[in-house]
Design a protein around this nucleic acid. Structure first.
Lengths: 226, 226
DNA sequence: ATTATCTATAGATCTATAGATAATGC
DNA sequence: ATTATCTATAGATCTATAGATAATGC
């Protein structure tokens, strides 16, 4: 039931994006929600390792159940299909990524210095999560269409962090003026150049340490803004 | 048997990379090499479509044989395993990519204009081969290790096209001086920004046409060189 | 009589579920 | 008696090969 129109609605509802926007509900046979959360954490922890190591198709549901510490029958009380497990894993990876970023980027100012710092933080997090980012690139395609929507939306939220930073910098004149499309593209470029360190490591590592990679890429990006 | 030291060795051997460096030999039961080439072309044509559409793991060897126009038994006279088919497909994609690029980039000069033109050509080719590039990103991991080596080497050859262009531009002073590592990184960045159009299309297409994408990315890249 | 192709299937999986069992709380 | 878990397996694949058949060239 809604309150009288015009009255202020609870802040919570307005600010925090509802879970339904950022996560897809996966049906379960088990009633206790806390147990569901705990078991699914076990499933995700086990599956992340197996998927990253062997790939989605070569890891079996039996292995996942075993690594999670229960039987195959129990696994299927908490998910409807193997693809549900894939979705849970992709979601967990993105949440972890976002958590790490927001933790280190809170109360960030604007301007060139802030952007430089944000790029460094982001690239370091990409390095820490190399295997997981690579996995997302390789297996997003195996998700059912509606799960995929949520995973791609998460990717846009991460790009959005850089868009905000650029937008705010332009708004308060701490960065040079940029067209809307330039902001959009630069934000996506930054996101991708972080990923690049993960999916081109086999080649980049011949010539660059992470520190060097960050330094030189950051110089290129800031060069565009100068 | 080698000739006398100091004498010039055949140009062919020096210039054209031997097939053994760019391609892995796949064993076959069939004697006639021309027939092998023709059948493998059929296999690749059929498999490319199926793999790109359904992914490597969901396409079956039966389907591939059928789409190629012969039976499953015949398929296995021309390859030893399904992974051999994957390798042939990856190789065909890279050869097609390189063919298209070299065709359009022959007799290219140096300097900013030449680089701008090369970027445009490359991005257009990436657009034409979107599905195939995406497929390489997703399924290279499914290759046996030694096949993977060849596929990654091909990727480096394509990056090498841009490295050459930058190197020559720096050497003849038509570009500003660049450190070796800057050339390496810029070349990789260009390669990846072309791929980005394929693996971020779902997001980029909301704001950019291909022409716009090329124009703005190119401006960023050339901005770094100014 | 050699080479290429086809049919039929062995053998090995793997996902998902049905029905039996154990644990929990009243 | 309700909830969670386990065991056992149905059912559906899918890769790769063995052995039979057809085509080719001498």
């Amino acid at each position: 039931m809604s309150r009288v129109r015009g009255l202020k609605v609870s802040n919570n509802k307005q600010r925090a994006p509802a879970l339904s926007e950022t996560a897809r509900a996966i049906p379960t046979e088990v009633k206790d929600p806390e147990l569901v959360a705990r078991r699914r954490r076990q499933i995700v922890d086990a599956a992340v390792k197996l998927f990253v190591h062997k790939g989605f198709h070569k890891a079996t549901t039996r292995e996942i159940a075993k690594a999670a510490g229960f039987s195959i029958g129990t696994l299927y009380e908490y998910v409807k299909s193997k693809e549900d497990v894939l979705y849970l894993v992709c979601q967990a990876i993105h949440l972890e990524m976002e958590r790490k970023l927001r933790l280190r980027l809170e109360h960030m100012g604007t301007g060139v210095q802030a952007l430089a710092a944000a790029i460094e933080v982001y690239f370091i997090v990409c390095d820490q999560m190399s295997d997981h980012i690579l996995f997302i690139y390789q297996e997003t395609k195996s998700l059912p269409k509606d799960s995929m929507r949520f995973v791609l939306a998460h990717e846009e939220r991460i790009t959005g962090i850089f868009k905000d930073l650029l937008q705010r910098g332009v708004a308060d004149y701490s960065l040079k003026p940029l067209k809307k499309s330039e902001i959009e593209l630069l934000a996506q470029d930054i996101a991708v150049l972080g990923h690049m360190w993960t999916f081109r490591r086999w080649s980049l590592a011949k010539n660059f340490s992470l520190e060097q990679y960050i330094r030189e890429q950051r110089a290129f990006i800031l060069g565009v803004l100068a």
